[in-house]
Amino acid sequence: MESDAVSAREALDAVSAARELNAERLRRPKRYWIMLGLMLAVFALLPYTADWPPLLRYSAAPALMILVAVVAAWRQPTAVRKIRLSGRMGLQLVGFALLGGVVIAVSRGVHLEQGWWWAPLVAAVLLFAFVAGVGPRMDRSWARRASHGEE
C-alpha cells in the first residue's frame, strides 16, 4: 500500500513538472505582443491617410502590417501557441478586441467631428502601450490556467 502511494506521488510529480513546463512554454514571446500592438497602432493611424490617393491609401496600411509581421517573425521560431481556450479566456479575448475597436472608433469620431488631429495618434500610442503591456500578462495567466486545467 505504501509503495502504491510512493508510486502515485512520483507520477503526480511528473504531471506537476509537465504542467510547469506547459505554463512556461505556452507563453508567447514578447515580440508577438509588440507586433500585435504595432499592427493595431497602424490601424489607428489610418485617418491620416484620408487625403492620400486611393491606391496609396488602401495599400499603405496592409503593406506596413505585412512589413511589421515579417520583421517580427524574421528567423524566429513560431509564436503560435495552440492553447485550448476556456469560456473565461474567450471572454477576455472578446473584451480585448472590443476595447481596441472602441478606442479606434472614438478617435476616428473626434478626429472627423471635432477636428482633433492628435486623436488617432493618441489612440495609436494607447493601443500599442496597452497591447504590449497587458498582452503578455494576460497570455501568462492563460498559459498558467490552461496548464493547470483551470476553467
Partner: peptide, 15 residues
C-alpha cells in the same frame, strides 16, 4: 510515466 507525461503535455493544447 512516459505516457502520463505525454498526456500532461497535450492536455492544455488543441494539438
Amino acid at each position: 510515466i512516459q505516457r502520463l507525461r505525454i498526456c500532461a503535455l497535450l492536455d492544455p493544447v488543441t494539438e
